[in-house]
């Protein structure tokens, strides 16, 4: 019984993290039809910014509990700056191009950012572990769980709720939905599609940075952390359906629970299960679990 409780809790923690790092990717694809490979680098920049600022914050001896606000501030700063620079500086010149070309463009941005991270932060690991231990541990049937992991679950839930509410209950969200359904018609109706794109990309970049910032206290922040994230986030959004927020949530839950089950019950297949699920979904529903087949315009 304890093993199954541990699987569910570990799965939920991992799923929360997966959702945090993949929701921005699927949002950008849904609106802009860009599979943003640089998403991994934005996550890494969020993590590095948070690690640097949290380190400086604690060195200065400020109130520890406000370090969580530093994490949010780091994510906002990294997401806004990088999102705006990438969208205004590169992507806006490429709109309307083939999706595959856009992948190459974002891949190039990814490579540049990976090197810039090394130039700016060096190659030694950064640690921002202080916030992780501040919430203490919770005892679940004799197993200690870090309070920080429950914070991550709550944050993922809030993020999902926030994105859902923004899309379904706000004017900007309705504009996004209109652009998702028909960009040309939206333009004809007076929607400033370019501004919608800018806002969407910056939000997506900030969500990636938020994922990185709140992951930083759990990990050692080292060069290359963005590479793994983009592969996992890609698996999650492919399983859920490219462009589907709900799909990203279900994809994250599926991958999170299966991975936790593998770790506890059959550790040898831990990595295999993630990509086996992706392969199965692609084989039977190439558009993912929650995205609808896309009709081609003639």
């Amino acid at each position: 019984m304890l093993t199954y409780v541990a699987i569910v809790l570990d799965g939920l923690v991992y799923a929360s993290w997966l959702f945090m790092v993949s929701v921005g990717l699927t949002l950008i694809y849904g609106v802009m039809k860009i599979l943003n490979i640089a998403h991994g680098s934005l996550y890494a920049i969020g993590a590095y910014t948070a690690a640097s600022l949290v380190g400086a914050y604690f060195s200065a001896g400020y109130v520890p509990v406000l370090s969580f606000a530093v994490l949010v501030g780091a994510a906002l700063a990294a997401g806004l700056v990088c999102g705006l620079v990438i969208e205004r500086g590169v992507l806006r010149f490429m709109y309307g191009q083939d999706e595959v070309l856009m992948i190459l463009v974002t891949y190039a941005i990814f490579l540049i950012l990976e090197d810039l991270i090394k130039v700016f932060w060096g190659v030694s690991p950064y640690f921002a572990f202080q916030p992780y231990g501040m919430l203490g541990n919770f005892d679940v049937m004799g197993l200690p769980y870090a309070g920080y992991d429950f914070l991550l679950m709550g944050l993922a839930g809030l993020t999902g709720l926030g994105v859902w509410w923004s899309i379904n209950r706000t004017r900007t969200g309705h504009l996004l939905t209109a652009v998702i359904h028909d960009r040309e018609m939206s333009t004809a109706m007076g929607v400033n599609v370019k501004r919608v794109y800018t806002v969407t990309f910056v939000i997506g970049a900030t969500l990636a940075a938020l994922g990185g910032a709140f992951t930083a206290p759990k990990i050692s922040v080292t060069p290359g952390i963005g590479v793994e994230v983009i592969v996992l986030a890609f698996a999650v959004v492919v399983i859920g359906g490219l462009g589907s927020i709900g799909g990203a949530m279900i994809g994250a839950l599926l991958v999170g629970i299966l991975r936790a089950a593998a770790v506890h019950l059959l550790p040898e297949v831990e990595l295999f299960v993630i990509y086996a699920v992706m392969a199965l979904v692609l084989a039977f529903r190439p558009y993912g679990l929650f995205a609808a087949p896309e009709a081609r315009k003639i």
Binding site: A6, D10, T215, I219, V263, H264, P267, E270
Partner: peptide
């Protein structure tokens, strides 16, 4: 218990839970 996280695993939490279990 015998566990094999990948090299450079960023988060060992689920493995530690499995060990404690």
């Amino acid at each position: 218990v015998e566990l094999w996280p990948k090299l450079y695993e960023p988060d060992f939490t689920p493995y530690i839970d499995a060990i404690l279990d």
